[in-house]
Design a protein around this nucleic acid. Structure first.
Length: 794
DNA sequence: GCGGACTGCTTACCT
DNA sequence: ACAGGTAAGCAGTCCGCG
């Protein structure tokens, strides 16, 4: 074509808009010199149907084609695809809205429909087999003719902003003025305000309206705009304040859209990507990649970057801004700036991971930083299913979901440990157990109980079997991913040896790991398109089988098996050494298929398992120490946020004294010191706070524990405690029951705590379970018994 | 009327 | 709003106790 030209740039955003006649895809591409929208007017929305017979097709054509309904079918063509043994037809429409209309009509006609609820922009990326990132386009004017990804580094401008607002007596988005804002990009950082004093590093503008304009101007320069909770705070705030001044806050020439996303909001900006770093942190927390008690910027900065950050509390903001005290104003300016800096840093640290997740799932960064792991798995499956030419299963209706939820899966096997102190422990585990099982046994919804007699060889311990002739969708994808990840890990290690820490390589393998590890959960997730009770159940049955057999073999080799959970086996080495253990692992692996691999997770010189309250040894709770004296504490109070710091820290030190030094007498001494300290009334609030999440609305609790009662009291004082908030409370002296005594720590004065509670319900229980295994009783801890050693008694 | 045993509800953890 | 398995605290109730 004469007017065709090639364009290289970064595909940043995908949208669509309606003309009078049709819906058109528009994509935002950042080129070297300019950024602009291109349109694809040759991609109509569509769905699939399986008509019952020829008459029905004719009927569809006649009745519907001519627009006798409030929609018209653009095209109705036969495809080579099949579902449930029926021929599939592709039915296209001019507008997205017509699909919604047609769905009703098709229901009435009794025509089965598929893939009718895939968002149009998602559909586009799937069908074009393209993901957000570097692309090469051929265009004619503003029209996209072809699009494909090319391998190149993205060159985007990232920037963060953060608002400070006047702190009124009621917290409501947009209610009070914005009084300060910081904007950071690269090393550059600026803070703006008005109506206040001049201090170092603070730029002054005329008024709030000017401040809004300034923010608008600055963030328009960015491709990726980063905030911390901008979905629910910063963006809705500037939007509301803009409306108040009858001056819409515009980014890229468009208003900010606050979209509903499940139970949450998301602030979307056309042609740019809004990255909410708080959503990133929540995702990292959910997937267990980080474990931070509270996800405020101070904690995140400290725990992720090791940088302490000073907080300015809401009640300090107003007077600081008024500027009576220059120091306070400077503190506020610095706080505002550091919030943006930390925010940008979080985004830049984790963005490589999300870029890779975006490539895998073909979703924009905006989506991939906000979607759940199950959504990511589903996006990947939709994409890969399209490539294979298979039709995606429909989403289940509520009734079906309820039925699915009624069936519960039998889970993994957990061996009851041997309680007590143990020496020389080897921990073995299966590498990526569930993905390996899925690949090895070709477990997928569509390979279940196939009709070939010979596939019954591949029978799971719970009786179902999986096809051996055709590779299933899920195992096919996982196999590719597993191989790729192994390769990436190898490359990463090789580079690291040369002193290069390749963050992109690391992110690539990390993204694969996250998706692979979620595949099993996805199959058992009631709302999944590819839900399969039988597949999930078979995976678990095989997993139980493998760990049982591993334990059995170890015992045959003369090991005593201390403990095991799901994919791990703890061996007592006794007279055996590391070489023996490795030999045993090799032997097991030789008997296994190549897809399965048992590995040595680590060797530990000592470890402790404890006795449960009601007798028997506690599962999922233990502590280990290796040759280098690294402590690994699992499941105990120490790792739980709903125990106070004092109890947790005392427990850690007791474990350390017992495992590293073998000095229980010192532990007794320590505990007695702590008790004395508690009795003195001098222990600080920060040591006594217990953190518990309010998981539902207050009125929905049938049993109100301490955190609920503390929330009630706070609510009465006008504090906003909503579902999902982390409550930090203290057991005070006032009240009868523990719940009555519970008060949020911000309302408690230093020294007002129930020492008996903290001794008997926090410190002692956390510590006695360890000491009991060494023969100590609660009495010994309180009164300092056994200091002279056991010998004196015996 | 009191204390221990037990139950149900609740949360956070492990793999 | 990915799965099940697990421990344990707290509130409330039951039970036995002349």
């Amino acid at each position: 074509m004469a007017n065709e030209k090639k364009v290289l740039g970064v595909l940043l955003d995908v949208n669509y808009e309606d003309t009078d006649e049709f819906s058109q895809i528009k994509i935002f591409v950042k080129e070297k010199k300019e950024s602009r929208w291109y349109y694809d007017r040759n991609f109509p929305p569509y769905l699939y149907i399986t008509p019952i017979n020829v008459a029905q097709i004719k009927d569809l054509r006649e009745k519907v084609f001519e627009g006798t309904e409030n929609f018209s079918i653009l095209d109705l063509v036969e495809t080579k695809k099949e579902i449930h043994g029926k021929q599939v037809w592709k039915c296209s429409f001019a507008k997205v809205s017509e699909i919604v209309q047609a769905r009703k009509q098709l229901n009435e006609m009794g025509v089965q429909k598929f893939e009718y609820d895939i968002p149009f922009t998602k559909r586009y990326l799937i069908d074009k087999e393209v993901f957000p990132g570097y692309v090469e386009l051929t265009v004619e004017g503003d029209e996209v003719k072809t699009i494909k990804n090319v391998d190149a580094e993205m060159d985007l401008v990232n920037g963060a902003f953060d608002l400070e607002t006047w702190s009124g007596d009621k917290f409501e988005v947009g209610r009070e003025p914005i009084i300060m804002a910081s904007i950071v990009s690269g090393r550059k950082g600026e803070v703006y305000s008005y109506d206040t004093k001049k201090v170092e590093g603070l730029g002054l503008v005329d008024d709030e309206e000017e401040l809004l304009k300034k923010i608008e101007e600055e963030i328009n320069k960015f491709d990726l705009i980063v905030t911390y909770n901008g979905d629910n705070f910063d963006f809705p705030y500037v939007k509301k304040r803009g409306e108040k001044f009858k001056q819409d806050f515009l980014v890229n020439g468009a208003k900010i859209r606050i979209k509903r996303r499940g139970l949450d909001n998301a602030a979307a900006i056309k042609g740019k990507q809004h990255i909410d770093a708080y959503q990133i942190m929540k995702f990292m927390q959910r997937t267990g990649s980080v474990n931070i008690v509270k996800l405020d910027l101070e904690n995140v900065s400290d725990k992720i970057f090791g940088i302490k950050k000073e907080k300015v509390y809401p009640h300090e903001i107003n007077s600081a801004w008024e500027g009576k005290n220059k120091k306070d104003l400077e503190r506020l300016v610095n706080y505002n700036l550091e919030d943006s800096r930390t925010t940008l840093r979080i985004a830049e640290d984790f963005l490589p991971l999300f870029v890779e997740l975006s490539k895998l799932t073909s979703q924009t960064l905006e989506d991939v930083t906000r979607s759940s792991t199950s959504q990511k798995v589903e996006d990947l499956l939709l994409k890969e299913a399209y490539k294979r030419g298979t039709i995606a299963p429909n989403k289940a209706h509520e009734g079906e979901i309820r039925e699915r939820l009624n069936r519960s899966l039998k889970g993994a096997f957990v061996k009851e440990p041997l309680a007590g102190l143990h020496e020389n422990i080897a921990v073995l585990d299966f590498a990526s157990l569930y993905p390996s099982l899925i690949i090895l046994h070709n477990i997928s919804p569509e390979t279940l109980n196939c009709s070939h007699a010979e596939c019954k060889k591949n029978k799971s311990p719970d009786g179902t079997w999986f096809c051996l002739k055709e590779k299933g969708l899920v195992p096919e994808i996982l196999e590719k991913m597993l191989k790729q990840r192994l390769q990436l890990k190898k490359e990463y290690k090789a580079k690291k040896k040369k002193g290069v820490d390749d963050k992109v390589l690391f992110a690539k393998q990390w993204a694969l790991k996250i998706i692979m590890n979620s595949a099993f959960g996805y199959l058992g997730y009631a709302r999944a398109r590819w839900y399969s009770f039988e597949a999930a159940s078979a995976i678990l049955a095989w997993a139980r089988d493998y760990i049982h057999k591993t334990i059995e073999k170890a015992e045959q080799e003369g090991y005593e098996v201390l403990y095991g959970d799901t994919d791990s086996t703890f061996l007592l080495m006794k007279d055996k050494n590391k070489k023996d253990v490795e030999k045993f692992v090799d032997k097991v692996n030789n008997a296994l298929s190549g897809d399965m691999e048992l590995e040595v997770d680590g060797y530990y010189k000592r470890g402790i398992f404890v006795t449960k309250k009601e007798g028997g040894a506690a599962k999922k709770r233990y502590a280990l120490i290796d040759e280098k004296n690294n402590l690994k504490i699992v499941g105990f109070e120490y790792v739980r946020r709903d125990w106070c710091n004092l109890a947790k820290e005392t427990q850690r030190r007791v474990i350390e004294l017992v495992l590293a030094e073998g000095k229980p007498e010192k532990a007794v001494e320590l505990v007695r010191e702590v008790i004395k300290e508690l009795k003195s009334g001098k222990v600080k609030k920060t040591e006594l706070s217990i953190i518990t999440m309010l998981k539902r609305k207050i009125e929905d609790y049938s049993s109100t524990g301490p955190h609920v009662e503390a929330a009630k009291k706070a609510l009465a004082k006008g504090k906003d405690v909503g579902v999902g908030s982390l409550l930090s409370f203290i057991i005070t002296k006032n009240g009868k029951t523990i719940s009555e005594k519970a008060v949020l720590d911000e309302y408690v004065s230093e020294g007002d705590y129930d020492a008996d509670y903290y001794i008997n319900n926090q410190v002692l229980p956390a510590v006695i379970k360890i000491m009991r295994e060494l023969g100590y009783t609660e009495e010994d801890l309180i009164h300092g018994g056994k200091q002279s050693g056991l010998g004196a008694w015996m």
